[in-house]
């Protein structure tokens, strides 16, 4: 278990650092790169949490598709590739204040409530093998209706995005 812990903290440290950099760097492209780091970290965490299917999806969808999309967006909107000092708006301190307070509050209440509750390893071990299978059972069994809804949503988003972005 110690190994898992070490992994966790290493990855978590990278993620936290990157997440903060995403919203603080002055270069949009760099922000996108940091975002990649964060997303990859999340995928790693999924592995730690024994959800390898999710980890794979994360890598495919997020890093493979979304980040690329974002980068396209950056390029298409001709963001400066160098430093852009004007990335934050005039009320950034309200946001900062909110973010910090929010974090403090969350931390306080989480520590307060979950204390040192362990992640239920016993259960997790039984699920380690065959998690993908369970996921597929759940998606196409219990959650089939939401699944269909999501697929319709994706279709709608697809159509919508095309309609919006099309040059007339």
């Amino acid at each position: 278990m110690v190994a898992q812990n070490i992994f966790f903290y290493v990855i978590a440290a990278v993620m936290a650092f990157s997440a903060i950099r995403v919203v603080t760097v002055k270069n949009v492209v760099h922000a996108a790169m940091y975002l990649v780091l964060v997303l990859a970290g999340v995928a790693a965490q999924y592995v730690l949490l024994a959800s390898e299917f999710l980890a794979a999806t994360q890598v495919l969808v997020y890093i493979g598709a979304i980040v690329v999309l974002v980068l396209f967006g950056v390029m298409l909107t001709r963001a400066k590739l160098g430093e852009d000092v004007n990335l934050t708006n005039d009320y950034w301190y309200v946001g900062a204040f909110t973010g910090v307070i929010l974090f403090v509050l969350l931390a306080v209440s989480l520590l307060d409530h979950f204390g040192d509750e362990p992640l239920d390893q016993a259960n997790a071990e039984t699920q380690i093998v065959g998690n993908t299978e369970q996921v597929s059972d759940a998606i196409f069994g219990t959650y089939v209706v939401p699944f269909e809804a999501v697929s319709v949503l994706l279709l709608a988003a697809l159509v919508g995005a095309i309609v919006l972005a099309r040059k007339d």
Binding site: N89, Y91, V94, G95, F97, T98, I101, L102, L105, S109
Partner: peptide
Amino acid sequence: VQQYGAILFAATVVLAGVFI
């Protein structure tokens, strides 16, 4: 919009803080 959001969030956070 962002500013509205900022106010909204700030207020919510403060309220939640008091609450907690």
